[in-house]
Design a protein around this nucleic acid. Structure first.
Lengths: 237, 237
DNA sequence: ATTTGTTATCGTAAGGCATACGATAACAGA
DNA sequence: TCTGTTATCGTATGCCTTACGATAACAAAT
């Protein structure tokens, strides 16, 4: 009866940051807990869970550790638990050293979380010491463990979610934005192309987008109108 | 550093069975491993994971144990891991006894799986010894642990999935079925109501449903045409 | 001053799709 | 023969999407 697995459980966060042009993922260098470089491989920000927290809270803790953000609702999208997740021996060694464990780890089941974030000035310089950085998702290198697959799944989940609820893209733009900016966000995040000429009709039908009187300034073409988001009630997760 | 949690990981399966009229969930009595009745409370079929299997395989094993079915793709929909999942002391006690453990269990993280099944003659009499039974989801009692919440989440996930891909309902009907039967399945599973008169137009536009020449027999109203499903290629999970 | 390039914004028209609903078909039983 | 019930088809209306022409506004080149 004792082939039952008593693995560790972690959360890994696929933080997708929009920088005004494209989608980036936050990756960290797989360094030791005292800072020395172990393998030079990038991985997702994550952590084993603590005794007093639930899975959502563990994900929030990781988010705060690497970005300083709190109060962000992340989407739990999938659990990864194959027995071969640590098949690369270096990964096992790294885990034991990083967490100061006195025994080998056979298995880690990880819960994937993801969210969309806006990369603004504050976000560009991340909390120090972790060698975290934003990398365009189109240029991501191979990540440690099965983290590349985890990123793929996160993207699928986020796109499905945002397709059903466009208001998730609210936070990716500044307070005032033009129609072209909103269109670009939708194209990049959802992975689609939208008809430029018809986009204003869609815009006019979005009850949560209100036009402002203010217009662009100093552009060498017709100035575009600014819009802002109007928060609606009945906002569910 | 040693507040890291090293919990057990289980899978719990929300098996949703359609009996021709309504949706049922498979629940089992929380009995000891030698059959004695412990609390008389119902729970979901589930199991801790084994050393040599991944999460999907563990879920398949549970499905087979309780229904005899194999080769069914289940949907992994959410992980549940709050520190208070075993807050009921009886639950902890039951776990230690059932799995013959020689220590207390602080915490179990469980991965929820679900799928839609058709309850046919074979399925009605389930594999013996587990006191498993189908109960209409509208009449489910309070389940052990947080299993009631798990059922709710499973329903949400299945409905979202089946709304996007109606072919998931293929397996809930016999080979030959009438338009009314299909409509009823869609109404019950998706939790919607469909216009009777317009349903045939929708039917005619479903490329994966083909009309047969055969008709109903022995009904005291106009006989309905039978249809069958046509499996399409490019069927992804 | 005029032209050109570029992007924003509006209007119109065609086609697809959902919904409402009238009309007919088929059968069993009163 | 009539009535009740369900299946099935056809038509009409309105909404939404898409295609695309037309106009607006501005900067830079000519």
């Amino acid at each position: 009866m004792e082939s039952l697995v008593n693995p560790y459980v972690s959360v890994d966060c696929v933080l997708l940051g929009f920088d005004g042009e494209q989608l980036n993922a936050l990756v960290v260098r797989q360094s030791g807990n005292n800072g020395e470089d172990v393998a030079g491989i990038y991985k997702l920000p994550g952590s084993l869970i603590n005794l007093d927290e639930n899975l959502d809270e563990a994900a929030q803790r990781v988010l705060k550790q690497f970005t300083g953000l709190s109060q962000v609702n992340m989407l739990q999208f999938k659990a990864f638990g194959g027995p071969d997740r640590l098949k690369n021996p270096e990964d096992s060694v790294w885990l034991v050293r990083f967490y100061n464990l006195n025994h080998h780890i056979d298995r880690i089941v990880t819960i994937g979380y993801t969210t969309l974030l806006r990369i603004d000035r504050k976000m560009r310089k991340l909390e120090g010491g972790y060698e975290a950085q934003w990398m365009p998702i189109s240029e991501l290198p191979r990540l440690a463990f099965d983290h590349s697959a985890i990123v793929d799944e996160a993207l699928k989940a986020v796109r499905a979610k945002a397709t059903l609820d466009v208001t998730l893209l609210f936070d990716l733009l500044p307070n005032k934005f033009t129609a072209a900016q909103l269109r670009n966000v939708m194209e990049v995040v959802l992975g689609i192309t939208l008809d430029v000429k018809n986009f204003h009709k869609k815009l006019a039908q979005m009850p949560y987008v209100v036009p402002l009187e203010e217009k662009e300034d100093g552009v060498n073409h017709r100035a575009a109108r600014y819009y802002k988001f109007k928060k609606l009630k009945n906002k569910h997760i």
